[in-house]
Simulated assay, not measured.
Amino acid sequence: MDSHDLGAVGRRPLPAKPDLSDAAADRRDPADAVEARWRQLALVWQWRRERQEVLRPGAAFPGIVRLIEVAGAERTLRQLYPYNSHFALHLSSCTQYPYALRVPSVLPRHDGRFQVFVPRVGTLLGETDTAEAAVALVVAHLPAGLGPAVAGTADDLCR
Score class of each variant (00 low, 15 high):
residue 152 G to N: 06
residue 59 A to Q: 12
residue 10 G to K: 09
residue 119 P to N: 11
residue 76 T to A: 09
residue 86 H to S: 10
residue 87 F to G: 04
residue 93 S to K: 03
residue 133 A to E: 13
residue 89 L to D: 03
residue 105 S to Q: 07
residue 8 A to M: 09
residue 25 A to K: 03
residue 39 R to G: 13
residue 92 S to T: 02
residue 155 D to Q: 14
residue 97 Y to T: 15
residue 52 Q to S: 13
residue 67 L to H: 04
residue 52 Q to G: 08
residue 111 D to L: 11
residue 15 P to N: 07
residue 20 L to A: 09
residue 118 V to T: 13
residue 24 A to Q: 12
residue 116 V to S: 02
residue 30 P to F: 00
residue 54 V to S: 04
residue 119 P to C: 11
residue 124 L to R: 15
residue 99 Y to Q: 07
residue 19 D to R: 10
residue 77 L to Y: 04
residue 1 M to N: 11
residue 139 V to R: 06
residue 55 L to K: 10
residue 15 P to I: 02
residue 131 A to Y: 02
residue 92 S to V: 02
residue 64 I to W: 00
residue 57 P to H: 03
residue 156 D to S: 10
residue 93 S to E: 04
residue 90 H to T: 03
residue 106 V to G: 02
residue 158 C to I: 11
residue 125 L to W: 04
residue 37 R to T: 12
residue 61 F to N: 02
residue 140 A to N: 08
residue 159 R to N: 11
residue 43 L to M: 12
residue 3 S to F: 10
residue 96 Q to G: 00
residue 115 Q to D: 15
residue 46 Q to I: 09
residue 108 P to S: 08
residue 123 T to N: 15
residue 129 D to Q: 13
residue 79 Q to N: 03
residue 29 D to R: 09
residue 2 D to Y: 13
residue 38 W to T: 01
residue 134 A to S: 01
residue 103 V to N: 04
residue 97 Y to H: 11
residue 81 Y to C: 01
residue 59 A to C: 09
residue 9 V to H: 10
residue 17 K to Y: 08
residue 21 S to I: 05
residue 31 A to Q: 12
residue 144 A to K: 10
residue 4 H to L: 12
residue 34 V to W: 06
residue 139 V to N: 02
residue 99 Y to I: 02
residue 27 R to L: 12
residue 76 T to G: 07
residue 20 L to M: 13
residue 96 Q to I: 02
residue 48 R to M: 15
residue 25 A to S: 12
residue 140 A to V: 08
residue 17 K to F: 10
residue 30 P to V: 01
residue 91 L to H: 04
residue 101 L to F: 09
residue 54 V to K: 04
residue 31 A to D: 10
residue 152 G to Q: 02
residue 88 A to N: 08
residue 12 R to M: 13
residue 89 L to Q: 04
residue 107 L to D: 00
residue 152 G to I: 00
residue 74 E to L: 02
residue 80 L to M: 07
residue 54 V to L: 08
residue 129 D to I: 01
residue 32 D to L: 00
residue 24 A to D: 15
residue 75 R to G: 03
residue 18 P to A: 08
residue 34 V to G: 00
residue 52 Q to M: 15
residue 16 A to D: 15
residue 62 P to N: 05
residue 18 P to M: 08
residue 61 F to H: 11
residue 83 Y to W: 14
residue 30 P to C: 00
residue 83 Y to H: 14
residue 60 A to Q: 08
residue 121 V to W: 09
residue 7 G to Y: 01
residue 145 G to A: 07
residue 92 S to H: 01
residue 55 L to Q: 12
residue 43 L to C: 06
residue 111 D to P: 05
residue 13 P to S: 13
residue 132 E to G: 09
residue 98 P to D: 10
residue 23 A to V: 15
residue 90 H to E: 06
residue 61 F to A: 08
residue 122 G to S: 09
residue 63 G to L: 01
residue 60 A to Y: 05
residue 137 L to Q: 07
residue 10 G to S: 07
residue 40 Q to M: 11
residue 20 L to S: 11
residue 49 R to S: 06
residue 97 Y to K: 13
residue 22 D to L: 07
residue 12 R to E: 12
residue 153 T to I: 07
residue 106 V to A: 00
residue 83 Y to C: 04
residue 32 D to P: 01
residue 132 E to P: 06
residue 99 Y to G: 01
residue 38 W to S: 00
residue 36 A to F: 06
residue 156 D to R: 02
residue 50 E to L: 12
